[in-house]
Design a protein around this nucleic acid. Structure first.
Lengths: 271, 271
DNA sequence: ACCTGAACACCGTTCAAGT
DNA sequence: ACCTGAACACCGTTCAAGT
């Protein structure tokens, strides 16, 4: 009658909200040799995603890999989406969580390491960044990594609000960068061309098209050093948040009068 | 024999590399009333994507909206993916391209406006950020917008290399942020709950789970002001790139000796 | 408790055929 | 030139049934 257990009445938004019936939770006993369980299925899913990619991943294909009929998997997992969330968190479990309380550690370096670790992970599992447009990424591994980074930011001197903003900048940037890099990678490799060839083809095709009058110089593959410069950029921004205006070199962005979300003109939706 | 037309021999990586046979290009004459054409199809696709979302978008559904059989669309478009690229560029065509040569314009403000415009666009078309994990986003509209931003960065005093890095930071951040926001939005609305309820449910569910020992405080929906702080953060980073170390307040990130991509330890792929 | 088989309601895409 | 219909090879998921 009260709204104590709202979670059960609401349609699920994430695996992590599931209330697994006790009956389906395997006794984590000795004999783990035969039979499926959630961990085995998740591991197989990660393997399949790594080798075939997100687009070709299917429940039926996964079941085949497990030597089992397609529908067996549904005993352990409610939906394909749930499995993808589990797979995502499984790989994120490999991340080393930065320790804000480590003595003598430079927070800048900790942030840099965290960013590089996350990016490395997303490059090793290119499907992972593709799931971010549809899933919540709120599994325990993701959460503890994020909260580790957040604590580092707090220790650097940011306020809670600043830390949240910086956290958003940090993760959005790394995930976003990984996502576009993964797209290039996948599409080029599917076409059987090197990234450079693909880029060259695009650029030369654009030369021939009138629509590209202004802009073809922006067509670039993502070179290696871009991520480094961009990361420096984000880190410098965080630094500025942490230690603003030592010698008064310009107005602080926060002091600007501009509203955060100016009313967009009622632009026609369709060209 | 020479590799003059490599594009034709390589499997396509984007619609923008397609070589449309003249025969399929409609005479853009007077009577545009009846019959399909690429523009009409693209507009219908955008409409359908806006109302139903990326997951429910299908060629058959689109054809039905157009009052036509499913396969008619294939006369104008080679694949579903092509249509999504066209739809993406169509909405990006609404972006106002920043003018680097505008006199009296402050580049900081131009960047801020560009970021807010792009974010507004991605929020009005939540499916758009979801396509970035799979498509190249190299259409003419995207390109001219990006190159406009790039020119603003150059005028701000960045080197070409710095501008490329800053561009990557800028777009990765905005796209990434929009993508996670869109996920929350969609999943909550599909479950029929407010974003706040969804968040509360997650957080309380996490309290009950042992795996979340460290980290549940990082579970947060993306509040409105986060984007503002994060954007300030990225802009401050660009500012630092443009006008480094007026009064020597610490080492420049670029001067660090750390390699950009340190060799990742050969971590076991599966937990 | 765990797994199967058949079935349902979809997909994207090809292809021969119509007009 | 443009559009259709039937077909192919898939999907995710449900459900009754097996052991």
């Amino acid at each position: 009658m009260s709204d104590g257990s709202r979670t059960s009445r609401m349609r699920r938004t994430s695996v992590w909200l599931e209330e697994r019936s006790e009956v389906r939770r395997r006794a984590a006993g000795a004999g783990q040799t035969e039979g499926l369980d959630r961990e085995k299925i998740t591991a197989a899913a990660v393997r399949l995603l790594d080798t075939e990619g997100l687009a070709k991943f299917s429940m039926r294909r996964l079941a085949a890999d497990l030597g089992v009929t397609a529908m067996s998997v549904y005993w352990y997992v409610d939906r394909k989406d749930d499995l993808l969330e589990l797979a995502l968190d499984a790989v994120e479990g490999q991340l080393e969580v930065p320790d804000a309380d480590a003595e003598g550690a430079d927070w800048r370096e900790q942030l840099r390491q965290a960013a590089l670790a996350l990016r490395g992970l997303l490059r090793r599992h290119p499907w992972a960044s593709g799931t971010l447009g549809s899933f919540l990424n709120v599994g325990p591994s993701a959460m503890s990594f994020q909260s580790g980074v957040r604590r580092v930011l707090l220790r650097a001197g940011l306020s809670e609000e600043q830390a949240d903003g910086a956290l958003a900048a940090f993760f959005s940037f790394v995930y976003g960068h990984a996502a576009v890099e993964a797209s290039w990678q996948r599409r080029c490799s599917e076409a059987g061309v090197s990234s450079q060839d693909c880029f060259d083809a695009l650029r030369s095709a654009f030369g021939a098209r009138p629509e590209y009058a202004a802009g073809s110089e922006a067509v670039r593959p993502v070179p290696e050093r871009d991520f480094g410069v961009a990361l420096d950029c984000v880190l410098a921004g965080i630094e500025a948040l942490a230690a603003p205006v030592r010698g008064g070199r310009g107005t602080l962005p926060q002091e600007r009068a501009a509203p955060v979300i100016p009313p967009q003109p009622p632009a026609p939706e369709d060209r």
